[in-house]
Design a protein around this nucleic acid. Structure first.
Ligand SMILES: [Zn+2]
Ligand SMILES: [Zn+2]
Ligand SMILES: [Zn+2]
Ligand SMILES: [Zn+2]
Lengths: 168, 168
DNA sequence: TTCGGCGATGTTATAAGATAACGCCATGAC
DNA sequence: GTCATGGCGTTATCTTATAACATCGCCGAA
C-alpha cells in the first residue's frame, strides 16, 4: 500500500512537501487505472496529466498549452490540450474547477467522489475534499425536490490557514 | 391534488406561472434595496436587471447584450453589460453561475444567503435554493480545516422533475 | 450659480477560454 | 494485408471577459 502523502482529508499541501512524489504517484495511479479500464493513456495525455500536476494550484488550459509547446519544442494547438483534458476529466484523473476555468489533478482517482474543493483566493491552491455531510445534504434536498443529480459542483472560495497567518 | 397539476412550490417555476409578476417584483425589490443602501440603480442597470429576468434560465452576458442593443436601437459594447452585471452582483440582485458562465436574478435579494442552485441540464432552468444543511456542512468542514470561507459556490447539475417526466 | 470631483457610461482594442470542420496516420482486429 | 477506429494535427472561428482611456452628468461645496 502506498504511503498517503496527500490524504484527501488533509489541508492544502504546504510548500515543503515532496511534490515530485505527488506527480510520480499520480502518474502511476493513472497508468494502473487506464490499464484496468482499457483506456488509452497515450504519451500526449500522460504528458498533459503531468503538466496539470505541476502544482496544487488549478491551471488554465493555455498555461498547460504553453508548457507543452515548450517541452515539445514546437507550437501546439489549443485543441490538442483540450482533447487531452477532456479524456482525463472523463477518466476522473483531472477535475475542472468551474469558478476558475482551470484544471487540477484528482486527489483520489478511481474512488467514488463528487468533486468538492476549498480554493484559496490568496495563494491559489485548491484542496479537494469529499465531505459526506455536504454530499448527504445535497442528496437530501435534491430528493425532496425530485431533482435528479448528475454532477454536483462545490467550490468554496476563501482563505487557507497559511494565508490567514501571513496576512492577519 | 391531481397527478398532472403544476405546483408552484416546485424546484423550478413551471411554464404556466405569471412571469410578468416575477419581473415586476424583482424590479420593485431592487428599487427598494438600492434606495435603502444609497446605491444607484441607474436606468441602464435597471434595464440589464430586467433582461436578466427575461426567464428563469441563466443568461449569458452576450445574450443580454443583444437584447439591450435591440431595445436601444444601437449597438452596445460588452463592457456596458459587464459593468452593469458587476454592480448587480455586488448588490446581490443577480448571481453568476460559474459552471455556465451565465447570470440569473436572485430569488431573495437582501436576505442572507449563499447562492446554491439546482440547474437542469435538459431545460436550462435554474432554481436558487438556500439549504441550511448544505450551508452548515460547508461551514463545519471549513472550520475543521481552519479555512475561512468568503464565497461558497454550490451548483448542482441534473434533471428537474418536469424533464424527468418528459424523458423517462 | 458656478465649479470641481467623482462615479457612470462610451469607445476601441485585446486577452483568455473553448470549439468546429476536415483530414491524416497509427493501432489493432480480422 | 485490409479495414475500421480512434488519436492527433491544422486552420479557422466562436464565446466570454477585461484593459486603457475619453467623456458625460450628477451633486455638493464655495
Ligand atoms: Zn504535491
Ligand atoms: Zn492559501
Ligand atoms: Zn417567473
Ligand atoms: Zn428541466
Amino acid at each position: 500500500m502506498t504511503a498517503d502523502s496527500h490524504p484527501t482529508t488533509g489541508p492544502i499541501p504546504n510548500h515543503g512537501h515532496d511534490h515530485a512524489h505527488c506527480i510520480a504517484d499520480a502518474l502511476m495511479r493513472a497508468d494502473a487505472l487506464c490499464a484496468e479500464r482499457g483506456a488509452r493513456l497515450t504519451a500526449l495525455r500522460r504528458q498533459v496529466l503531468e503538466l496539470v500536476w505541476t502544482s496544487h494550484k488549478p491551471r488554465g488550459a493555455y498555461a498547460i498549452l504553453e508548457d507543452l509547446s515548450q517541452r515539445e519544442g514546437k507550437a501546439t494547438a489549443p485543441l490538442t490540450v483540450y482533447r487531452a483534458l477532456e479524456f482525463l476529466v472523463e477518466q476522473g484523473l483531472v477535475h475542472r474547477l468551474e469558478s476558475l476555468n482551470a484544471y487540477i489533478g484528482c486527489a483520489a482517482p478511481g474512488a467514488v467522489h463528487s468533486g468538492q474543493f476549498l480554493v484559496c483566493e490568496t495563494c491559489g491552491n485548491a484542496a479537494e475534499i469529499d465531505d459526506p455531510r455536504i454530499r448527504a445534504a445535497i442528496g437530501t434536498i435534491a430528493a425532496e425536490r425530485g431533482f435528479q443529480v448528475s454532477r454536483p459542483t462545490v467550490e468554496v472560495r476563501g482563505t487557507c490557514t497559511d494565508c490567514q497567518e501571513k496576512t492577519p
